[in-house]
Structure formats: structure tokens, C-alpha cells
Amino acid sequence: DVAEQLTPVLLDGLREESLQLVSKLKDSSSSCAVDVSTMWWEAAGCRELCVVTACESSVSLWKPLASDRWGKVYTWQLGEIPVIQIVPLPDTCNLVCIALGDLEIGEIRLLLYSSENDSFKRSLVKTGNIKAVLGLKDRRLVSSSRTVQEQQVEIVSLSETGRSKDGQTLMPPEETVLAFAEVEGMRDALVGTTAANSIVVWNLKTGQLLKKMHVGYSYPASICHRAYSDSGLLFVVLSHPHAKESESCGNPAFRVIAFNPKTARSTGVTFSSLPPGHAGRYLEGDVKEASAAAVLTSGAIAVWDLLLGQCTALLPPDPDPDPDPDPDPDPAGGWALARWATTSACLLAGQRDGTICLYRY
């Protein structure tokens, strides 16, 4: 019955690309999901892709059981500072970072499992007035933070046991960096988006700021999600939380833009707009490979193929209607989180009540 209720609405006849509900997990001890992610966990010689859920005061690790069920392995209880987001570290095992703070990130902590003595630990990685953080390949973490006078962009390397090794600083741009993305296939290249709507490119090895390129005035406060270089161009996937609807492009949630880093000129490649007739705008989302997913202000989740610029599936705002309707229902109820697992084959969708649904895409 549940699977039937949650069957996503398909658009434009793209029926081969749909979302299939695989399983649900709900932490009975928590009422609200702040973030969800996946991490590899290896214990007793067995390596499994696990789900990590965060509520304001704790982070839990869930392992797959038989019959598409999930069992909680461990919960890290955190202090008085609320958890804001999970910061996954790609291609690592038994390590995940979390960002904590009030309104803004005040500290980043590492949560880890030691298979040597079968114990769960935590350690402090960084404190400060942190504006953006991203886990990079090879157990590295990049963050931007601000003091009154200046901005610091720093890379911290983490060891297998979680201890921070020497950090490296990158040359900061004048504007505050609000998001980072690794340039796929280029180990030493990193891009960021700034508060003044520019893309900046760094050389991670030397710390040099190589280029600053303006995104344009039509789409303020762009956030970078993904970047890759092809045929001498830098392709960047951006989301536009504050984009205004236009006749030519509809209401764009994501755009793929090609930059020529030599000249700083750019051109739009694809627009991924809200489905026709769908009111509201982009709230938050995630990109993996050519797939993008976002929670909309209506409480729905939309999924796009970024190469086609086309919406391929939509989870309606109220996927699991209460048989005894609330007399005062939340008008924007439904979904709160949309995250891809380590591949775009699995979507983790979080409801406002803390339930996480796993969909095969």
C-alpha cells in the first residue's frame, strides 16, 4: 500500500526513468531530520554502504539488513550546539564529518569508527565562523571562514584514524565563498561560488587563485554543485535558490554553464526548470553525475536529467496521507531533504517528521 501511495508522478512520458520506493527508515527517538547521507562502513572484514541520518542533537549510522530493512548501528550523541549538515568524505570508509552551529557553522567535527578496537569516536576538526565546507577525495576537507578582517580558505587532511594533519591555505577571493565543488578528473582543481555570484578556480597543489569568472546578473546567489573539464571548457552545475521566473526559461532550479577559463566568457548549456504548472521555487537539492534532485517550496521533490534539462520524476508533497487528516495541516508539508547516495541510482528523500525514504532511480 505504501509503495503504491508513493509512486512518483511521471512527466512527458519518460517512464523508463522513475523512482521506485525501496525502503523506509525512521528513528523513533528523533522527530526531525536535519540531513541524510551515505558512507562506507567496514567492520569485521565486511564493507557496506550505510545511511547516516542527523537530527539536531545526534547522528546515527544505519546498516542494511535483509528484506530492504535498516538497523541502527550506532548513535553519536552531540552537545548543545545543533547539527546543521552532514559533510560526507568521498571514497573513504568509516569516516564522516558534520557541521554544527547556530544559524551559521561554528565547528566541524569528525565522526569515525575504528575497526582496530571496534569503537566509535569523534574529534574536532575546525572551529570558526565557517561559511562553506566540502569533503574532498583523499580524506581532505575544504572550508571557507571569515574573521572581521579577512577570509580564510583552508584544506585540512585527515588520517585514517581521524587526526588532522597539516592544513594548507588557498588564496581567498575578496568575496565570501559560499560553496565548493571538486573539478572531476582534475585532482588539483577546485571551484567555488561566491556571494557576488562569481565562479573562482583554485590550484589545490599551489594554493593559487587561478581565475574569477562572473556568472551573470540574471541568477543571483548561484551555488555550485558539480564541475568537470572537457574539451578545454569548464562545465559547472549551479543551483539558483533565488532565481526569478522568466518567460524564456521558466523557473530554473539548476543550470549547466560552460566557462572558458582562459577568457572568463561563458554560455548556458542546459536549464533545468520547475515542472510546468508547478508553483514555488527551488529550496535545496543535490547533484550526482547527470542527475539533480531538489525539494521545492511546495513540499514536492523534483528530479531532473541535467543533460536533457528535463524533469524526469516528481514526488508529490504529501506522499503518505494521514488516514485521519490533521484539521490544521502544514500547507508546505511533505519533503524536506533530497540527497543522492554515492551513485545517482539511489535517492534519499527525507520527510519533515524524520522519515527517510530510499528510492531506486
Binding site: 588564496m171 582534475m186 588539483d188 582543481a189 578556480v201 590550484n203 599551489t206 593559487q208 587563485l209 587561478l210 581565475k211 573539464s229 574539451s231 578545454g232 571548457l233 569548464l234 560552460a258 572558458n260 577559463p261 582562459k262 577568457t263 566568457r265 561563458s266 554560455t267 548549456v269
Partner: peptide, 23 residues
């Protein structure tokens, strides 16, 4: 997009910008 829109394209843009940028 054509090359004329974006200006001259270099496959080695990362190395070239790294050589040009201040250390």
C-alpha cells in the same frame, strides 16, 4: 556554442593559468 562566443579555447587551461597566476 562556438569558439567565437567563448574566445580561444585551450585544452591546457589549468596548467597555463597556473603558470600565469601569482604564486
Amino acid at each position: 556554442c562556438s569558439e567565437s562566443d567563448l574566445g580561444p579555447i585551450s585544452l591546457n587551461w589549468f596548467e597555463e593559468l597556473s603558470a600565469e597566476a601569482p604564486p
